[in-house]
Design a protein around this nucleic acid. Structure first.
Length: 478
RNA sequence: UCCCUAGUAGCUCAGUUGGUUAGAGCGGCGGACUGUUAAUCCGUAGGUCGUAGGUUCAAGUCCUACCUGGGGAGCCA
């Protein structure tokens, strides 16, 4: 008899039918005559209740079926006599597939702190919270591919090892096969990377954007979805050294088209989550509610599902950087000198300013556009005012910047001038500049931090809890 | 990297102005119980108090350094 997944048994299982279920024991409880096993196989947040008539089974077998053990159960589905579930499985055959020594198995049938589970990241998938998070993470990855596929975008695999440091997006991880103790040196004492594997210094990518632009200016619309690496010593709940990024790049799109796409894209994924992950979302929403019970009422966040629906059903506010500065300078916290950092045109907005705009002033996702050129990257489209560029950042409540994007400068001369001003070596970027030399067109793109988006959808508070094996400064376990 | 904060049983924590033998709940184990819902009830084992120094008659408690975790900031996605 083939195994059925617990998700399907709970959904379609008919009383009276015989089935085989396999999974991991969450809890076992009961009395002298009857035991109840809550069995979970990861297909759903819900457990299948296994009813075991104690007298029909070997005592030592039942003793070894404890929290964490893997078992196979053959039996008859019956309508449950208890009130917690509609259907349950009366065990006829029980097989212990893999025991779990209760003295050593760290996951107990009780609430664990996220910090403890992070140290046991290899086993935390077996908890309700993390199985829900990772099912949702999967669903969002799928929704992203589905969205772009339906829009006619091509999934482009940009390189993970790269020789360009062009974007200056951050510190890079070096990729080298040279002997770290005794590297070959050039005449002036520098490390001689011409003898390295690739014949030059190489790093892990910080962004696939520049390569993405090459694809877009031939295929029309492309997107990347892959790992990205930043060697910054960032220790926050929103940063990882290794994270996943989605970077669409579109020919013939101006900044407005770019914003329209970003908003529609985010909403489409959120809609997919609401339509396909409701049980997991409900569990996480309830968890969040319990978590926040201790907090004063005004500090509690909106119910997770209400929050997702709110974002889905409301237009994002779109304002320019200059307008945002005006709003901030007229705000209460500014006038009462509550902001820690100054608000002056030309400086980048600080977290406190972004939070004020999103969480206090508009209470809604905000797209900020047209930033001063000096605080943005060289490739952004230069506006006619000579001061700003066609950048756009999407700010989400609780997360901050979730998307950063721009229209790209398509004019070769303007781009070269800007690169000179910003000391970017044009000779190493010749391949990139070719897009502007041959058939250059207006085009745009953006980058979405996948884990930051998953933070938002799951309501989790720490980015280390939405990626399976987080890489952060001083931590590369597992 | 900076600021704040924490590290005591497998987990979550309490441990007063430094003072005798370091406690609880949960989990584990043993037992009881005719259907439980993270069951309940009774019993039981389990701890060089993050590490290294220092102050003191006396340190889980005070001081210093380091390590690790958490929160915030910067950098950004």
């Amino acid at each position: 008899m083939t195994r059925l997944k617990i998700k399907d048994i709970l959904k379609d299982g008919k009383a009276g039918s015989e089935v085989v279920a396999k999974g991991w024991v969450r809890t076992k409880r009961g009395s002298k005559n009857v035991n109840f096993i809550a069995l979970n196989d990861g297909s759903t947040i819900n457990n299948l209740q296994i009813v075991v008539d104690v007298e029909s089974f070997d005592e030592t077998l039942l003793r070894d079926i404890n929290t964490g053990a893997a078992i196979s159960v053959k039996g008859e589905l019956v309508e449950s006599a208890g009130s917690g579930q509609k259907i349950e499985l009366n065990a006829k055959e029980l097989v212990l597939l893999g025991g779990a020594d209760p003295d050593k198995y760290p996951i107990q049938p009780k609430k664990h702190s996220l910090e403890f589970l992070r140290e046991n990241a290899h086993l935390r998938f077996r908890t309700n919270t993390f199985s829900a998070v990772f099912r949702i993470r999967h669903a969002m990855a799928f929704a992203i591919h589905k969205y772009f596929n339906e829009k006619g975008f091509n999934y482009l695999h940009t390189p993970i090892i790269t020789a360009s440091d062009a974007e200056g997006a951050g510190q890079m991880f070096r990729v080298s096969t040279l002997d770290p103790k005794n590297p070959p040196l050039t005449e002036d004492g520098q490390i001689d990377f011409s003898q390295d594997f690739f014949g030059k210094a190489t790093n892990l990518t910080v962004s696939g954007q520049l390569e993405g632009e090459l694809g877009a200016l031939a295929l029309g619309e492309i997107y990347t979805f892959g790992p990205t690496f930043r060697a910054e010593n960032s220790n926050t709940t929103r940063h990882l050294a290794e994270f996943w990024m989605i970077e669409p790049e579109m020919a013939f799109y101006d900044l407005k088209d770019n914003m329209d796409l970003a908003e529609d894209f985010l909403k489409s994924c959120i809609k997919y989550a609401l339509e396909n992950c409701m049980e997991d979302l409900k569990f996480l929403a309830e968890r969040l509610k319990q978590e926040e019970k201790g907090k004063p009422e005004d500090q509690r966040s909106m119910d997770l599902i209400e929050k997702l629906e709110f974002v889905l059903n409301n237009d994002f506010i779109r304002i320019t950087y200059t307008e945002a500065i005006d709003i901030l300078r007229n705000s209460k916290p500014f006038k009462k000198k509550k902001f820690q950092f100054p608000v002056d045109w030309g400086t980048d907005l600080q977290s406190e300013h972004e939070r004020y705009l999103v969480e206090k002033h508009f209470k809604c996702p905000v797209i900020l556009t047209d930033y001063p050129k000096d605080i943005k990257a060289f490739y952004m489209k230069q506006n006619n005012d000579g001061k700003t560029v066609g950048a756009m950042d999407v700010l989400f409540p609780g997360i901050g910047e979730i998307i950063g994007g721009s229209q790209r400068e398509e004019n070769l001369e303007k781009l070269e001038t800007r690169m000179k001003e910003m000391d970017i070596p044009a000779e190493e970027m010749d391949w990139y500049l070719d897009t502007r030399r041959f058939g250059s067109v207006e085009h745009s793109g953006f980058g979405l931090g996948f884990e930051r988006f998953i933070l938002f959808v799951t309501g989790m508070g720490n980015i280390r809890d939405v990626i399976a094996f987080p890489r952060t400064p001083k931590n590369a376990e597992f």
